[in-house]
């Protein structure tokens, strides 16, 4: 296993520790807004254990993936939401 894993967060490349969750990668990169609520507010992980759904991001093209339940992988593309949910 290499020392770091290269991922992109909203098109910016980041090198993160292998084995960490996507949620941790984003939080460590100071990303405050994982998704936008219906009212347009920034939302980020609450429960850390797959229940609250607040950490949902788009991972490798698949929308609404729970960042806290997915481990980073080389080349992973993570996109956070920038506009309010309908």
């Amino acid at each position: 296993m290499s020392e770091t894993v290269a991922i992109t967060i909203d098109a910016a490349e980041h090198h993160v520790a292998p084995g960490i969750s996507v949620a941790s990668a984003l939080l460590n990169a100071s990303v405050a807004s994982f998704r936008r609520s219906r009212g347009g507010d920034a939302r980020a992980p609450l429960c850390g254990m797959g229940v609250c759904q607040e950490c949902r991001v788009t991972i490798d093209g698949a929308a609404h993936q729970r960042a806290c339940m997915v481990t980073v992988a080389e080349g992973m593309r993570i996109v956070t939401a920038t506009s309010a949910e309908p």
Partner: peptide, 14 residues
């Protein structure tokens, strides 16, 4: 965060 939530995040590398 949740209290356990912070612990879970910490364990997963936050």
């Amino acid at each position: 965060f949740g209290i356990g939530g912070a612990q879970a995040l910490l364990k997963s590398g936050t």
